[in-house]
Design a protein around this nucleic acid. Sequence first.
RNA 1: GGCGGCGUAGCUCAGUUGGUGAGAGCGCUCGACUCAUAAUCGAGAGGUCGGCAGUUCGAGUCUGCCCGCCGCUACCA
Length: 546
Amino acid sequence: MSQRILVAVAWPYASGSLHLGHLGGAYLPADIFARYHRIAGNQVLMVSGSDAHGTPITVKADEEGITPREVVERYHPEILGYWDAIGISFDLFTTTMTENHAAVTQDIFLRLLEKGYLVKGTSTQFFDPEAERFLPDRYVEGTCPHCNYPRARGDQCENCGRTLDATDLIDPRSRLTGATPVLRETEHYFFKLPEFADPLREWLESKTTWRRHVKNWALGMIDEGMPERAMTRDIDWGVEVPVDDLGPSKRIYVWFDAVIGYLSAAKEWASLIEDPEAWRKWWEDPAAESYYFVGKDNIPFHTVIWPAMLMGYGGLNLPTDVPANQYITFKGEKASKSSGIGRSIGWYADRLEPDALRYAIAAVLPEQNDTDLSDDDMIRRINEELVATWGNLVNRVLSLSDRNFGGTVPEPGPLTTTDEALVASIDKTLETAAGHIEAIELRAGLRAAMDAASEVNAYLNSEEPWHVLKEDEKRAATILWTAIQAISGIRVALSPYLPWTSARLGEMLGIGPKVTGWERPEVTGGSELGTVETLFTKLDADALDD
RNA sequence: GGCGGCGUAGCUCAGUUGGUGAGAGCGCUCGACUCAUAAUCGAGAGGUCGGCAGUUCGAGUCUGCCCGCCGCUACCA
């Protein structure tokens, strides 16, 4: 039975390069999950895009003396380049700068306003009298009241690490003009989050398969009591507020519009395929499922705020699951754009084969804990696990067959119980791997496939076809045929993780590059093999040393 | 400070509702094999399950306290 599945992936800021933490935290797991479901015959819609709004973009623009739009137009293509390079298979990766996105955002804003979930309120904020604009906290600098660091930002002191309120700063000054900012009242729309506490709690309690840290986090947030949250900001970059009673120079809060991106991207995709209503099948049909792949820092927005917005709007599906990952760290430090720790995805994609990079990350996805990763670890895993176990298995079997059976798949005689057991075990592996992937235990799914490869290696060592060949060619043919069937099955189990080499292996086996179903395709005895070549290149120890 | 998560072999991690001898992969040691990208297969060594107390016939698994790491606590998303 075909299932509709929305794979919603966190929207990266288009304010800098992305690193392996992003890849392992959201994009690669989402892609593996999506590829599996497509192969299994489900209808997947996988969307995301560059988040063009928010202060990180405007800060970057100010630093470089260019417009926010120019910042996005620089980084968005770079990000698209990553997805091409390593095969992250979005149906659409757009941006939040589109007219469509603004329209969808404003529609949700107006509906929530109409239903009374958005109310006006005031807050007090610093205002730069020279620039004549309100200042976000991170645009205010001053002396830290805790450690006396003279250049603390209004949101956090970089010296002592404490979180601050801009009004705590001693001698505050504007980062734009250096002027002394003054406090001024400002009016905004607030989202009545507290009204959703009970339905949110009930909904979350029903989620028995969610990751523990995700569910507890969300429930804890509700139990603490959620404040009404401002959904507009004093900023001139973002989606325009669709009512004019706040005055000019207000925009919709970037987070309000960012999560709406999942919906607006689905609508944009539907328009692009010239079936404008197609998005409804993923959003309005209660049988459709939706999975949000995000990092752990995004949990509150996807498990509380976005569901509350959806509840308030009405008629759209709530998340089926939010399998938030922890972080990949480098020597214990979180990779981040601002700290410069961790090189970009593009840097690695230039130096590693895409499937090798995917393997190295997939093997350490931070599904339960922060996971530490170094370049040496990556090289070791690629060489010792991927190349040695799987690449070598394929190579030893296919080169033996190629060389001794004239470039064809050997034609088998009667199978022994050992042969039958091996093939049955591989079929079982496909079931096991499917169960893991559906439960979003992607490391375990990969492990299952690699264990199967080891099993075939053991089978070969015990059957020794290279010896049998000299005495009983038919038996040797049977052994190799059996091993080829096993490889054919393992290829399917690995294909969500290793799409590039799975396609090449399909060509080598003579069954075509595409994996057409979550089952082992039989490779017919006597059929032609493609050109047999190694699947992966073994890396030098210094492959990532520059 | 408050909230959540995590702390298990050298490294990266699994360990359902507490129950017979604590696991995997990689690394290491030894052995087998040589078709294969010095690849593969087998065996083995290696852990007071962060610390202390408690509940229980029995705890890595529950409770309390403590220590450490990460995240959230922000007009950063």
